[in-house]
Design a protein around this nucleic acid. Structure first.
Length: 962
RNA sequence: GCGGGGGUGUCCGAGCGGUCAAAGGAGGCAGGCUUAGGACCUGCUGGCAUAGGCCUGCGCGGGUUCGAAUCCCGCCCCCCGCACCA
């Protein structure tokens, strides 16, 4: 099917390569444009998702190149991280599932697959396949700057070392601790992909409120420490195992599970004894706020696996607490078993502390009754809890009983309150998982605090401020993504930037750590500017000292001195510095929206940390995620499309155009084979059509319709250019491909014989407008049009104001709406006309019309004012009566017109409709297969049996059908 | 839950106060070309209407306005991200 495409595409790819038109070197005389694509991770082939993003970048690059920018689009490969190693291990262990996937989906041949037990081999394989695919789809890449990451590319590794040492010097890399979801059996963090249960669950920080009980504390866990003002009792699970333990320096009573968890959270835990919860039931504890003695009661809903297994009770605001109390009241025999007097329970009065709209003093009681919660084991308890919690958190206001917090909203005061409680020594904290998480190995996970971790200190407010500033200064495509960036910058916490396993660059000051994969891919665009020299001059990694990098990227130090130390020629160091300063900053970086919270934000953070403002990113584009036939692309769903297979099937241009027309902004494009087929046939007919135009001979005098076509083409040029500038690639392609074509269609429908010269002019522009999208076939058509050189570097069509002919455009609108109106009448009357008469408006109507339009431009017009002005004209004065009737009808019409429309019509001035319609007479005859008569409404000799002529208005000739 | 993006005609999508029955594409219909066509070209494609009009309509319910797909309020639904992972 795509045989013909392949021939064309291969030919032009070879030509481009031969002439090196995409290799870009600094040229101080030209404006530069530096675009980048986030290097893809090489644990598999490039797929259509990569292609979508990269095609958008390539379109932009090709456009800028045609606009005369010295444009650099480099490419590299990401090898850093664990999955490549992980996959290699799985292959080694004979994992059928992955072997099948690699064979069938990635298309890896058997004999290659065997070698994949070596992760490096695998990365190399996919890299070389990927490069082939990127070339096949026609990305305009300067391949001299290609590289891959990790210590296997020593110069790159050196670059990462420089980056991290510099960041550390600036205080942006710090040592710290970090809570992770942890499998106690595997003794490693349990990421989402390693879980049987609990996807998406992450550590939550609980506040522990410490209640004195004898010589020990009962640390009750809560998300709502403010409710301590309403505490009435404690709940322990009588059947669960608790321990008395020395935690750090205090004696705590907690569940046995909690003791283990705390021991993993950097606490010294020494268990003194174990006992059943029932032992403490009926005993009393002290509320540290009010000093009251309160009872410990049995609560079977208390889960010893959740946090500390100790729960304090706030029946006014916690449905679970209220219902548990109620359960006890209803079961005196249970109380008796624990030796608790029923009067103790009856004596417990809920204490209200939060005022919340829509509820009385005791929201928990209200909701329990409203929802008909049966008892503490009713699943509805959770729902009730969540409703009350949300409501009180967002809208609740604290009551006077809370002292200094009274009158404030819960949400606004929570953090302050926790701080205060910690200072008072009544609060502590622990991490736990809000839901059950189970590791692949079937072990239940806990939260562990890792120590000695290295972090990028993204929490640093000063750093965040710079990052926000960078976002404010950059163009963000689409604009709506700007808020997204700001939000994510605020939200980012410290990022653990080193790992123990996988491929990558060792942390220079602690080489048993490897720089984490997202953290080593933040400023590598700078490396593109010098990798060329490293290759060309065979510079060794060890020659690239920190001082050399400091000079190249930051301008620090003297090249001559550096040359002596590093052994790199001073001239080469200068060359590298020049190349960096020429290309930097990055003019555009684009990725899918999933990378905004991590990669793209890191990209911004690292740039503002390391580089001066003039080297901060200029523009960032964000796009949606590719769907295949309406579904998310995934290997397991069997709808995974690799780039090379798709290009094989449909050809590069078809693939590019289909992708680009799929979506823009943050919408998710949907790849459908049907669409690709349709684009395929359209591109073929485009080619035929251009061929036809190219072979046309002769030249006719330009008519209004020729001026029209050239004029609307100017609008198309402008629209396409603006769209690409704003990365509205779909809009741009849609206009360049379909709208221009439709314009030409109208032209052809409109004329009996097209003017070859007009069509050739249009084709010449049209092909260039399409070149960024479908470059191969456009090169081919460029030749058909007898043009020399590559269209890829031809001059982008210039919007020419001189060629815009508003009158011609408005004239065409008259013709079109006249045809529509005529058809409408034919439809309504079910008449097939033998004769159609058109009557164009009289001179005086035009005078009045334009006068009112002009007035309406500046203000809303009133009949009185208009009439007064019009009556100054002697000629009009004679028709005063007719005019006032006409104006009365006209005014509402004009007041409803858009400013733009009014301006256009004023600019178009008086249109000679009689001449216009006469010129279009053949068209009308052809369309309606009827005799066409055209008159001025004033024409006394007109044929007008129904007396319709007086209905004529400017822009709207009257119609009579026989 | 938090944050971001969305809900438009048969479908995909543009529009974001008047030019809107609503761009463009797909699908459907009709005609042309052709031995034939799922290939290509052209036109039509909400309903009603014997004169260029009217009615319904842009997730649901209210509101602002001379006028709302477009602005405001409330609600429902869908997609994406939420950290040691590329």
């Amino acid at each position: 099917m795509s045989l013909e495409w392949r021939r064309i595409e291969e030919k032009w790819r070879r030509e481009w390569e031969k002439d090196r038109i995409f290799e870009a070197d600094p040229d101080p005389k030209r404006k530069k444009c530096f675009v980048t694509f986030p290097y893809p991770y090489m644990n598999g082939p490039l797929h259509l998702g990569h292609a979508f993003t990269a095609t958008r970048i390539d379109v932009y690059a090709r456009y800028k190149r045609m606009r005369g920018f010295n444009t650099l689009f480099p490419w590299a490969w990401h090898w850093t991280g664990e999955p490549i190693v992980g996959t290699a291990l799985r292959i080694q262990s004979g994992d059928e599932e992955i072997i099948k996937a690699l064979k069938e989906i990635d298309g890896v041949p058997e004999e290659e697959l065997k070698k994949f037990v070596d992760p490096i081999y695998m990365a190399k394989y996919y890299t070389s396949e990927g490069k082939e695919a990127a070339k096949e789809i026609g990305f305009s890449v300067d391949w001299r700057r290609e590289f891959h990451t990790t210590s296997l590319e020593p110069a790159y590794s050196r670059f990462i070392e420089w980056q991290y040492e510099t960041l550390r010097k600036k205080g942006y890399v710090v040592k710290g601790t970090h809570p992770v979801v942890w499998c106690p059996k595997c003794k490693s963090p349990t990421g989402d992909h390693d879980r049987l249960e609990g996807e998406g669950v992450s550590p939550e920080e609980y506040t522990l409120l410490k209640f004195q009980c004898g010589d020990a504390y009962l640390p009750a866990a809560t998300f709502r420490p403010e409710t301590i003002y309403g505490v009435t009792n404690m709940f322990l699970n009588p059947d669960a195992t608790y321990v008395e333990a020395i935690v750090d320096d205090e004696k705590w009573i907690i569940s046995k599970e909690a003791a283990f968890k705390l021991s993993e959270q950097m606490r010294k835990v020494k268990i003194l004894r174990e006992f059943k919860g029932s032992e403490l039931i009926g005993k009393y504890f002290v509320d540290p706020i009010s000093g009251r003695n309160l009872p410990i009661l049995p609560g079977w809903f208390v889960d010893p696996k959740s946090a500390t297994g100790v729960v304090y009770s706030v029946p006014a605001h916690a449905p679970a607490d209220w219902i548990a109390l109620k359960d006890l009241m209803n079961k005196p025999e249970v109380l008796r078993k624990f030796g608790i007097d029923l009067e103790v329970i009856k004596g417990i009065k809920p204490i209200s502390l939060i005022k919340v709209e829509g509820y009385g003093d005791y929201p928990a009681i209200e909701i329990v009754e409203k929802m008909g919660v049966r008892d503490q084991f009713d699943p509805k308890v959770d729902e009730a809890t969540s409703i009350i919690y949300r409501k009180e958190f967002h809208t609740g206001v604290l009551k006077p009983i809370t002292g200094k917090y009274a009158g404030k909203r819960v949400r606004d005061v929570k953090a302050e309150l926790i701080e205060d409680f910690k200072k008072m020594g009544i609060a502590d904290l622990m991490y736990d998982l809000p839901e059950k998480v189970v590791c692949r190995c079937t072990t239940r996970c806990i939260v562990k605090i890792l120590s000695d971790q290295w972090f990028l200190k993204y929490s640093d407010p000063e750093w965040k401020k710079l990052a926000h500033e960078a976002v404010d200064r950059a163009k963000i495509f689409p604009e709506t993504a700007r808020a997204y960036f700001h939000d994510k910058i605020d939200w980012l916490r410290d990022w653990a930037c080193a790992r123990r396993t996988g491929l990558g660059t060792p942390l220079p000051w602690s080489p048993d750590w490897i720089v984490e994969t997202l953290s080593d891919s933040t400023i590598y665009m700078a490396f593109y500017t010098i990798v060329k020299h490293i290759r060309k001059y065979n510079i060794k990694a060890e020659q690239l000292t920190n001082e050399v990098f400091d000079h190249i990227f930051l301008g620090i130090g003297d090249p001559d001195a550096l040359a002596k130390d590093s052994g790199i020629d001073a001239s080469i160091i200068r060359e590298m510095r020049d190349e960096f300063t020429y290309w930097y900053p990055v003019d555009l970086r684009v990725s899918a929206k999933e990378l905004v919270p991590n990669h793209l934000s890191f990209f911004i953070f690292q740039h503002v940390a390391l580089f001066p403002q003039k080297y901060w990113p200029r523009a960032i584009g964000v796009n949606g995620m590719l769907l295949i036939e309406g579904k998310k692309m995934s290997k397991s769903k069997g709808n995974f499309l690799t780039l090379s297979k798709t290009v094989d099937e449909f050809g590069a241009d078809v693939t590019r155009m289909t992708l680009i027309l799929g979506a823009e902004d943050m919408e998710d494009p949907d790849w459908r084979a049907e669409n690709a087929k349709s684009i395929d046939s359209k591109l073929r007919s485009l080619y035929r059509f251009i061929n036809e135009i190219a072979s046309m001979q002769g030249e006719d005098k330009p008519r209004s319709i020729d001026r029209w076509l050239i004029s609307v083409l100017q609008g198309r040029i402008k629209a396409v250019s603006e769209a690409i500038e704003n990365l509205k690639t779909r809009t741009a392609a849609e206009i360049a491909f379909f709208e221009v074509w439709n314009d030409i269609r109208w032209y052809l429908r409109r004329v009996d014989k097209p003017n070859p010269k007009t069509l050739k002019k249009v084709a010449d522009v049209w092909v260039r407008l399409l070149a960024p999208f479908t470059p191969h076939v456009c090169e081919e058509m460029w030749r058909l049009l007898k043009r020399k050189g590559f269209i890829s570097v031809a001059e982008w069509p210039v919007y020419d104001k001189e060629k815009v002919d508003v009158a011609a455009e408005e004239s065409e609108d008259i013709i079109r709406s006249l045809i529509n109106d005529t058809l409408n009448i034919m439809e309504a009357t079910k008449k097939t006309p033998k004769r159609i008469c058109y009557y164009v408006a009289a001179d005086w109507k035009w005078k009045v019309y334009l006068e009112i339009l002009r007035k309406a431009l500046s203000a809303r017009v009133e009949i009185r004012d208009v009439m007064r002005a019009l009556m100054k004209d002697q000629e009009l004065r004679e028709k005063a009566k007719k005019i006032s009737a006409y104006v009365g009808k006209l005014l509402p019409e004009i007041n409803v017109m858009s400013e733009d429309q009014k301006r256009r019509r004023v600019k178009a001035k008086r249109i000679d409709e009689e001449a216009l319609l006469n010129e279009a007479k053949e068209l009308f005859e052809k369309e309606f297969k009827a005799e066409i008569l055209i008159y001025n409404e004033d024409d006394s000799k007109r044929y007008d049996p129904m007396n319709r002529a007086n209905l004529a208005k400017p822009y709207r000739p009257a119609i009579y059908i026989e």
